[in-house]
Design a protein around this nucleic acid. Structure first.
Lengths: 264, 264
DNA sequence: TCGCACTTGCGCACAGTGTGCGCTATCGAC
DNA sequence: GTCGATAGCGCACACTGTGCGCAAGTGCGA
């Protein structure tokens, strides 16, 4: 019997089949990889928020022990960096052909970034936790491509960098505030509209002596989502308008066509 | 002996003196108050950063047990809200008399906010953690006074609110990025200059295919602190310039003097 | 003056965290 | 078939926020 088992088994096909089915079982359990870990982390974060992300629960969701993750990820902070960079991978930077469309392109990037931030409402917290200036490949990619748009449009490299810095600071700040607000609401089980009705009076009272009450009361009647979008666009336009003015001044000085000098 | 002890003690002065010196000892230990807790928390945060703030160490610094703090503060999150609001208390909003100086005033508020954020480099993280849109008295105060400046200058309430939202999103985003960057450096024991020299080549390599290398290399030679300040001012001017343009357009339409209509 | 209610502080305990260490399987190459 | 490498895991440690119940002290009414 022992010999049988070793040689070919009682039923020659059984062990072969067993080994075929047991070996993949390990692999069917879809070996832990950095990609799988990051993907599942994002799913967990989207569902439960940043404070719910622990190595133990993440491991559990992957059918693995907590410490197994450390074979692929050096620390929780590193994982957060990876996850943040992955979100930047969702950002779309349009390939522009006509440099004069830089305005639209920049708009698109900004809105894409905002939408990513709102899809993953933990993004603001995560960036704060991790330093906000790590250099992941996707971040670098988005940055480089957007800078490309601006230099093609005629901005100097120096000004393009400053401009992009301004836009992304604004977008990140605004989006962090928005998503922080929204997730705070959700954590307390409120709907956006209800909350407005509850906190509204308090806010109004607080600023009563500034004579601003009517305006705030007016705000409460509108669709909050629409208001947020409008506010965001307002600020973005403010910045882009100024950029356009500077670009015009610059081009008037040199008298150059933008495409001629920078489109290599 | 028992009777002695009860009546007046072996040495009559000893117990009296003891009670005199032991009772104040409790009060000398400067009773725990919310203010003291918040102040010490800020000190701890400034010295050691957000991740070093634990109820136990904070209690220890105050000569108290960890759970004693909970008599004055509902939770750690609430403490962070208090601490964040306290920082807003450091912001200076100039009292303006001439409405046309709104530009300068807004500049001053923005820079004051940035400086507060850099003085307390944990501020960005804290705001992210706590929702960023809580309504503490100091936040409300700064907001209301700044809105006052803008409406006095001639902005409608609607536009003043949007404008302030834009500015503070930008400032918070930019400052969070700056302080995140700086504290990440400090955590790893680098000086700003050293780091630039270390990471510089990597960044340059990353964006090499965009042909932006010369510019980045140039950046590395300058004083980083000055560069950061310049970048911040660039973005702020971008926004304020646009605001001025909108205000001019608005006033041209109505033909009103700003002071006449809004100065109460 | 006494006594009582009430505040303030604290120790204990619990559940949960990130992560280092060392063991055990399994896999790929010779 | 044997062996080195590597992935995964259990255990353990130090540490976290915070609920609970008890002790000490305070101020107020009788």
């Amino acid at each position: 019997m022992n010999i049988d088992t070793e040689a070919s088994g009682p039923d020659p096909q059984a062990p072969a089949l067993a080994s075929v089915w047991t070996r993949p079982q390990r692999q069917r359990k879809e070996q832990l990889t950095r990609e799988r870990i990051v993907a599942e982390a994002i799913r967990l974060l989207d569902e439960e928020g940043l404070e719910a992300l622990s190595m133990r629960t993440l491991g559990q969701r992957l059918g693995a022990g907590a410490t197994s993750l450390y074979r692929h990820v050096a620390s929780k902070d590193e994982l957060i960096e990876l996850v943040a960079d992955a979100v930047y991978g969702e950002i779309e930077v349009p390939e522009i052909v006509d440099p004069s469309t830089w305005r639209l392109a920049l708009h698109a990037v900004a809105h894409s970034l905002r939408m990513a931030g709102l899809r993953h409402m933990w993004m603001g917290q995560a960036l704060g936790q991790v330093g906000m200036t790590y250099v992941g490949p996707n971040v670098v990619g988005v940055t480089a491509r957007t800078l490309g748009i601006l230099t093609m449009a005629g901005f100097s490299e120096d000004e393009a960098a400053k401009a992009l810095g301004t836009v992304s600071s604004y977008v990140l700040g605004a989006t962090a505030a928005e998503s922080g607000w929204l997730s705070a609401l959700r954590r307390n089980g409120y709907e956006e509209k209800d909350w407005m009705r509850i906190i509204g009076p308090t806010v109004v009272e607080s600023v009563a002596d500034s004579g601003l009450t009517e305006f705030y009361l007016e705000q409460l009647k509108r669709d909050p989502q629409e208001v947020r979008m409008e506010n965001f666009s307002y600020g973005l336009d403010l910045i882009i308008d100024s950029l356009q003015a500077r670009l015009a001044a610059r081009l008037a000085d040199t008298g150059d066509r933008p495409t001629a000098e920078s489109k290599k």
